[in-house]
Design a protein around this nucleic acid. Sequence first.
DNA 1: GCCAACGTTGGC
DNA 2: GCCAACGTTGGC
Length: 166
Amino acid sequence: MIAKESIHSNKVQKRYWLFKSEPSTFSIDDLINSPNRTASWDGVRNFQARNYLRDAMSVGDNGFFYHSSCASPGIVGIVQITSTGTADVSAFDPLSPHYDPKSNPLNPRWFMVNVKFIKKLKTPITLQALKKNPHLSSFTLLQKGNRLSVMPVTKQQWEAILVMAK
DNA sequence: GCCAACGTTGGC
DNA sequence: GCCAACGTTGGC
């Protein structure tokens, strides 16, 4: 008990994230059907999101899985980060839709983490519902013009959203 | 399909 | 360093 507490106190504060994906490309069910229910979150080609993946994510952090560009956009599940940022190998593959000749193994430009499925919400929390929650007025996802596919979620926002899950 | 908003590129 | 042009995102 004491030992366990001391381990926790040595850890960096756990962070929370939101991972956006178009379900027609990669859905929460695709994650469930992945080996070990785990997938590399690759293909992110935005520098700010890259910095989160490369510098800020830790093993054990949690994230929401968000479906975008679909009939009912919203949060559909919860994941856990199981690796810190590593070079996004899809950038090295000329046949990949995410190929970037400016990235190479010696000096990778893009990064990815591994995420593991934790749970699927019985009822998705729709974007429409998120917008109505007064506790989420400063949530990055809801800011006008926001286009980040990976973004931080504060502990307060995380908990306010969990309350919305039925 | 439309279009507002944004990030990136490249000429200068 | 500026900024127009372009491509992309993503809600609707």
